[in-house]
Design a protein around this nucleic acid. Structure first.
Length: 1029
RNA sequence: GCUGAAGUGGUGGAAUUGGUAGACACGUUGGACUUAAAAUCCAAUGUCCAUUAGGACGUACGGGUUCAAGUCCCGUCUUCAGUACCA
């Protein structure tokens, strides 16, 4: 009986599919456990070995939990709306739905052959109307909701309307736009319908607003902040400009505080939580109003600033406004007007990127105006400076140079006085920014107070004189929710008199219309503008032809679509009950599954998907749709698998031909106006077609060898090259006869070795290149057919380097190849064996023989050429010790997500049991359950060979019995001054004194001491003996 | 700059609360089997010195705590990731 992995794996994959082995049951008696992977975008390239890493880890965990008796939900699906399919559609005209369907089929085939225990009956696809019906439904709920700051919760917009009708908006504590006017109930009721709708938009949790967006002309769409990297689009690297557009936005800022607080309740990685905290960017402080004195304005305006240090209010020596601040034009004095305008112009010209890159240059201009200090009544000069950002806080700062780095630098640069308000601190060289050690002085009623007390008091005093109040600011901005794309969820929105209206949820889904072209229209509208059947009939409640639009009963539909993160923000809830027609999932299903127990995915989603999904979850929780307000208890980021690229090294030669010319006939003399005997140089550059092996590359790289040493590198024929280059020169001369070379010398002008990527498939475990394989490659064979490979020790060694896996680097390894050569179990084990899950690590196919050999060895423990070798013989002490040692370690490892070390543990177990010649069923049967989560196919096969008729997947995990690991003696390391010199076998129950006596009596101890008397003997029973002296 | 993670043989990586550094693999070398190759099995494999016995040095670098430090403390350097004047 041989280990025929291909046969076994196909057999069990078929068995699992047929028997629905991994189907999760809603409402089982068993405790639930929900293991989720971030679902993939099905790209056209298919999977490479890096993609399944997280899926293998989560699969091991899911299978382990089944052995532990849990009812495990482990679903998979596709985030199938997205740009690549649309771009492909633009290029080829093929409908993205078809591309997507094909890609999904490839993904499914690839995933299936790795043997995942997914419950495929629950698969979701975000681009499926039966799924995006719910994305649209949630959008409608958001539109119909507002957020009450007081209750910290979302409520129905109807309640808000009632409130407006009865009391106006004067006392409402709601999250809304900054520019909402105050109105009474009478005023509200008198407003036109349009006006009311317009006001309500300022309160809705998703709203339409003119926003400055990141417009990418090349992609024809708006990008979210996190879709821009270094000022260019993340996808494609195109330029991005700021542009005003009417867009749907999500009022995520309403949830800023809860998103921040919620982080305390979830077990996510610290680095991820930290990124979210930074992104939310909470700062607590005060909003302070300063009166402005200005000759230019009759009624003195007020300048509002936000500060986190109200305790330092007596240290204010100037104010700084962002150049874009609206007060700037009002308050600037005529004398300063010119300078101020010049400065504003200069900063406006500087691009966003310049401003970011150039942080050190201090610039600013005095406006000529002054503000009045609320307590001292002293005049404070008002400056403008581009270190103050218009978009944060109020766009204005009270500058306290003694306590802030930038204010200090600004004050020093412009010679503005610096007031010291800290007791016992020297600020002549640098500001004092340590809040904790702060003792305020020189500050009237704040004197002697620490940061905390002074802050509280300052806010209190400001409130008394009505010139300020405590305030918390967040950096988190509302999220733009419109995309000018075809392949995304359509909005369930039509427009009446320019005002957005929601389609009744009963008529969902609103399906994507067919279009001829997937590009924006000629008038610059999004691709849906190409649709001819894209109007809403409010009588029939269906989508009808645009020709029928009468703006009475038939209205135009929204042309934007939703962004990529819409569909992924609640999918984890849909898996709980994916077929449900009436709800995202039934209440029973949600109450049973509640939340994700373990979520595995990449850290690149830290501030995108993972923040938006938390936001929607909290909203749905407020609406009573979901039972918990955090969707994932624990989250692990898997690292990336990198490729190990392979290089060959091509010699590039640049020759210099030095020749002396005889006198030439007159016609030519014009061209070669050189006297007889003059040396002329002619360069010749040659692509050599010689490829050198790695060590030759290393010894010649960067050197400048002479032409004669080249012969040592390879079979270099100087005469041949000389002639070749001379012919090259001659080709440039019209009449060949007239040229007579008198003396010619060839020299090497430049020599370099160029590394070239080659396909990693042609490299073996010893980094040797399969030259014949490369030459017969379908894609690149031509390039190398005539190449001369210069070997070292009879072989060609390639250079290696770790890089991101990518097609262009020819280091992509396809799991299909690995599965057919070594099997899915080997692939699964090897991906885990590579190293810790969260770490970035290189893939090197050569190493897979290690785990593959282990599986073969494991198989041999159970079966040989004569069939099964298992017996009912009682296990030996050693057998039991090996088994229980393994149980303990593997269980600990799985629970700590340390999958790499358990693979080692299995190897050790197999090595030991082989050495022990173990055939005992009592040992080998439980061992299979231990291995089953990692290598499920071989485990199922041997399990059934042992006579089990049920799948191994729900067999109970073996119980650890510590009694088998109890030892009677220990091989003590005996060290002298901390250095281990020898070991000694001693009973574990021996007393400290007896151990000391036994060790000192040993002749080796005496040898080591060489007559010296030990000063001290440290005995740690069961661990070590250390002799000092 | 700030935040977070990391730095151990030729390579991937092990090492519980400080207690025999380098488990387990890959690679390399030698050997067995074979006409040969593959496969398989056995042995060696951190560096240096030494014929051996043995010794010295070794976890990025420099200090420190300790009987004992990869592990704890202080400082420095490097790499990767995130972030960008947030008042």
């Amino acid at each position: 009986m041989k280990y025929n992995f291909n046969e076994i794996e196909a057999k069990w994959q078929k068995y699992w599919a047929k028997n629905q082995t991994f189907k999760a049951v809603n409402g089982s008696e068993k405790p639930k456990y929900y293991v989720l992977d971030m679902f993939p975008y099905p790209s056209g390239a298919g999977l490479h070995v890096g993609h399944p890493l997280g899926y293998i880890a989560s699969d091991i965990y899911a299978r382990y939990k089944r052995h532990q008796g849990f009812n495990v939900l482990h679903p998979q699906g596709y985030d199938s709306f997205g740009l690549p399919a649309e771009q492909y559609a633009i290029q080829t005209g093929q409908h993205p739905a078809i591309t997507t369907k094909d890609n999904i089929a490839t993904y499914r085939r690839q995933l299936d052959q790795i043997g995942f225990s997914f419950d495929w009956s629950r698969e979701v696809r975000t681009s499926d109307p039966s799924y995006y019906k719910w994305t649209q439904w949630i959008f409608i709920q958001l539109f119909n909701s507002w957020y009450c700051k007081h209750a910290q919760k979302a409520f129905e917009i109807k309640e808000l309307i009632t409130y407006f009708e009865e009391t106006g908006n004067g006392n409402i504590d709601a999250v809304c736009d900054d520019n909402v006017e105050v109105f009474t109930a009478e005023e509200w009721n008198a407003y036109s319908w349009e006006k009311q709708q317009d006001i309500l938009l300022k309160y809705r949790l998703t709203y339409l607003a003119e926003t400055e967006v990141n417009w990418c002309p090349a992609l024809g769409t708006v990008l979210a902040n996190d879709e821009i990297v270094n000022g260019v689009s993340e996808r494609g690297g195109h330029a991005v400009i700021r542009k005003k557009m009417t867009q749907w936005s999500m009022r995520i800022s309403a949830y800023a505080e809860r998103l921040l607080q919620g982080l305390e309740t979830i077990d996510w990685t610290d680095s991820l939580k930290e990124s979210q905290r930074n992104w939310i960017g909470k700062s607590v402080g005060a909003q302070v109003k300063f009166k402005v004195v200005s000759n230019e304005v009759k009624e003195a305006p007020e300048l509002e600033v936000f500060t986190t240090r109200p305790d330092t209010i007596f240290g204010v020596s100037f104010m700084t406004l962002a150049p874009e601040h609206e007060l700037v034009q009002q308050i600037t004095t005529p004398e300063q007007k010119e300078a101020v305008n010049a400065y504003i112009l200069a900063t406006a010209k500087r691009s966003e990127r310049d401003r970011m890159a150039d942080v050190k240059t201090i610039s600013g201009v005095f406006t000529g105006a002054y503000a009045i200090h609320p307590f001292t009544q002293k005049l404070i000069p008002i400056w403008i400076g581009d270190y103050v950002l218009a978009g944060y806080g109020t766009g204005a700062v009270m500058s306290v140079p003694c306590g802030d780095e930038r204010d200090y630098a600004f004050a020093k640069h412009f010679n503005i006085p610096i007031i010291n308000i800290f007791e016992g601190v020297d600020i002549s060289e640098e500001p004092f920014t340590d809040k904790q050690k702060t003792v305020i002085g020189n500050s009237d009623f704040l004197n002697g107070m620490n940061y905390k007390k002074a802050t509280k008091r300052a806010i209190y005093e400001l409130e008394q004189i009505e010139q300020g109040e405590g305030k918390t600011n967040y950096r988190l901005r509302d999220a733009v929710f419109s995309r000018q794309r075809y392949w995304g969820e359509p909005f369930p929105v039509y427009y009446v008199k320019g005002m957005p209206q929601m389609i009744d949820a009963a008529h969902l889904p609103i399906k994507l219309p067919e279009v001829e072209k997937y590009l924006p229209t000629e008038t610059g509208e999004p691709p849906l503008g190409n649709a001819t059947v894209w109007a809403w009939d409010t009588n029939k409640n269906e989508v009808v032809s645009n020709d029928l639009i009468d703006n009475e009963t038939i209205h135009p539909l929204e042309l934007n679509t939703m962004p990529g993160w819409a569909g992924s923000s609640f999918y984890f809830n849909r898996y709980m009950d994916p077929e449900n027609q009436n709800d995202i999932a039934s209440k029973e299903a949600m109450d049973y599954w509640k939340d994700v127990d373990l979520y595995i995915g990449g850290s690149e989603h830290a501030t995108g998907h993972l923040l938006y999904a938390r936001f929607w979850q909290k909203f749905l929780f407020d609406k009573g749709v979901v039972p918990v307000d955090e969707f994932a208890k624990k989250l692990i980021n898997q690292g990336m698998i990198l490729g190990t690229s392979a290089f060959v090294y091509k010699i590039n030669l640049e020759f210099k031909l030095i020749y002396t010319i005889k006198p030439l006939p007159e016609t030519i003399l014009l061209n070669y106006a050189q006297p007889f005997g003059k040396v002329k140089e002619q360069d010749g550059s040659v692509d050599s077609n010689y490829l050198v092996s790695k060590s030759i590359y290393e010894s010649y790289k960067g050197t400048n060898p002479s032409i004669d040493t080249l012969t040592f590198v390879f079979d270099f024929n100087k005469e041949y090259w000389k002639n070749r280059i001379m012919n090259q020169v001659l080709e440039n001369v019209e009449d060949k006869q007239v040229l007579n070379f008198y003396d010619v010398e060839l020299e090497l002008n430049n020599f370099n070795l160029k590394p070239i990527h080659v396909k990693v498939q042609y490299v073996n475990a010893s980094d040797e290149l399969d030259i014949e394989g490369l030459k017969s490659d379908r894609e690149f064979g031509e390039d190398y057919k005539d190449a001369e490979f210069i070997l070292e020790d009879g072989v060609y060694k390639v250079g290696r380097d770790v890089e991101k896996m990518s097609k262009s680097k020819y280091n992509v390894v396809n799991p299909d190849d690995i599965v057919s050569d070594y099997g899915a179990d080997s692939l699964r084990l090897y991906e885990m064996f590579l190293g810790p899950l969260e770490q970035y690590k290189p893939w090197n196919t050569a190493g897979i023989t290690g785990v593959h050999n282990f599986l073969k060895k494991l198989w041999k423990l159970y079966a040989d050429d004569n069939g099964l070798k298992i017996t009912d013989v009682a296990p030996t002490k050693d057998n039991l010790k090996t088994l229980h040692k393994t149980i303990k370690k593997v269980q600990e490892d799985i629970e700590n997500f340390s999958f790499n070390t358990s693979v080692s543990t299995f190897m050790i177990a197999a090595n030991e049991l082989t050495a022990q010649k173990c055939t005992s069923k009592d040992i080998l049967e439980p061992l299979l359950v231990l291995i089953s989560p990692y290598a499920p196919h071989i485990a199922e096969e041997l399990w059934s060979q042992l006579g089990n008729s049920e799948s191994i997947s729900t067999a109970p995990f073996p119980e650890f019995d510590a009694s088998h690991l109890v030892e009677s003696s220990k091989n003590y390391p005996i060290s002298f001054n901390g250095k281990t010199r020898f070991t000694m076998e001693l009973p574990l129950d021996m007393s400290k004194d007896d151990i000391e006596a036994a060790v000192l009596a040993n002749e080796k101890t005496q040898e080591q001491l060489a007559g010296r008397t030990p000063k001290k003997v440290i005995v740690v029973p069961g661990k070590i003996v250390n002799i000092v002296g």
